[in-house]
Design a binder for these strands. Structure first.
Length: 277
DNA sequence: GTCCAGGTTTAGC
DNA sequence: GCTAAACATGGA
C-alpha cells in the first residue's frame, strides 16, 4: 500500500469529487473510494491533509494533478474582479481538475448528456460491473471501466437493457470507431480547437461533451463546457443574453483564456452547492 | 402527473 | 445557415 499526503487547502477531496468531473466514487470509511480506469484509491481528509491510499501512487499523484499549484488560480479568480467568480473560487479552492483516462472520460460524458448525475453514476456502475475486468483493492472487489474493445463487442439492445436510454447507439458507434481507426492518443497531439472538432465527428458527441472530454480527459484548460447549470450562471450572475451555448463557451474562453476550465469548475460547484443546500 | 437532467441528432425551413 | 422536435430513463 502506497500513501500520498498532501495539504488540504488546495486539495479538498469532497469538492474535487462532487464537482461533476467523474462519476465513479462512493463514500467509504472516513472518506471515499475513487475509481479510475482499472485503478482504485481510498481518499480521506486527516487533520490539515488529504490522504490517498492506493497501489499506484504515481498514477494518482498525476490523476489528482498534484504537480500543479492551484493557489494561483484562486488569486487569478480574485483578480478578475467579478464577485461571483471570486466567491465561487474560494468555496471551491480545493477543487482540482483530474487527469482522467481519455476513453473513460469520453464514454462517461456521452452518457451524461440530458441526464441526472445520480443516474449517470448508476449507468456507469452497471456498465463497469457488466463488462469491466474484475479487480481487488484491499478488501474491496470492483470492476474496471470497460475498454472500447470490450464495449464494441456488445450491441444496442445490450446497452438499452442496462438503462442507457437513447444513448445506447452512441456507445455502439463510438466504441466501434475507437477500435477501427479513431485514436484518442493521436488526436491528443492536436491543438484544442482541432481536438474538439475531431471529437465532434463522433456520433453522440456534441459541443458540451467535446468540451468536457477536452477538459477532463485531455486536461485542456482552454475549454469551458456549458450545461444547464453554467447556462444559469451565465444568465443570472453574468447578465448574459446569448442563448446559443457555443457562443456562451466562446464568451468565457475569450474572457478567461487558459484558466477557463478551472474557473468553470468553480462556478459549476458553486451553483450546484447552492441548489442542493 | 409534470418537470428536468453536465445535450445531440435529425428534419425542415 | 438556423430552429424545433424527438429522444429513454428515473428521481424530485
Amino acid at each position: 500500500m502506497e500513501k500520498i499526503i498532501y495539504p488540504s487547502e488546495f486539495f479538498d477531496i469532497k469538492a474535487t469529487l462532487e464537482c461533476g468531473q467523474l462519476f465513479r466514487f462512493r463514500p467509504h470509511g472516513r472518506g471515499y473510494l475513487v475509481f479510475s480506469k482499472d485503478k482504485c484509491c481510498y481518499a480521506y481528509a486527516e487533520g490539515e491533509n488529504t490522504v490517498i491510499e492506493c497501489d499506484d501512487a504515481e498514477y494518482f499523484y498525476n490523476y489528482f494533478d498534484l504537480n500543479k499549484d492551484y493557489a494561483e488560480y484562486v488569486s487569478a479568480a480574485d483578480a478578475e474582479d467579478t464577485a461571483i467568480l471570486s466567491k465561487a473560487a474560494h468555496l471551491g479552492k480545493g477543487v482540482r481538475i483530474l487527469n482522467q483516462d481519455k476513453e473513460e472520460a469520453l464514454f462517461s460524458f456521452i452518457i451524461s448528456q440530458n441526464n441526472h448525475i445520480p443516474r449517470i453514476k448508476g449507468i456507469i456502475e452497471r456498465l463497469s460491473d457488466a463488462l469491466g475486468e474484475k479487480k481487488i483493492f484491499g478488501e474491496t472487489e470492483y470492476f474496471a471501466f470497460p475498454t472500447a474493445a470490450r464495449l464494441a463487442e456488445k450491441d444496442k439492445d445490450f446497452y438499452a437493457a442496462l438503462g442507457l436510454g437513447y444513448r445506447d447507439e452512441y456507445i455502439v458507434n463510438v466504441s466501434n470507431a475507437l477500435t477501427h481507426g479513431y485514436s484518442l492518443e493521436a488526436v491528443a497531439a492536436l491543438p484544442t480547437a482541432e481536438l474538439k472538432k475531431s471529437l465532434l465527428s463522433l456520433k453522440g458527441v456534441g459541443p458540451k461533451v467535446a468540451d468536457c472530454v477536452s477538459l477532463f480527459g485531455f486536461h485542456r484548460f482552454d475549454s469551458f463546457p456549458v450545461d444547464t447549470w453554467i447556462d444559469k450562471v451565465y444568465r443570472e450572475n453574468f447578465g448574459g443574453e446569448e442563448t446559443d451555448r457555443k457562443k456562451i463557451t466562446a464568451y468565457f474562453v475569450n474572457r478567461f483564456g487558459d484558466k477557463s476550465g478551472i474557473f468553470q469548475q468553480y462556478l459549476f460547484y458553486y451553483k450546484r452547492s447552492l441548489e442542493n443546500a
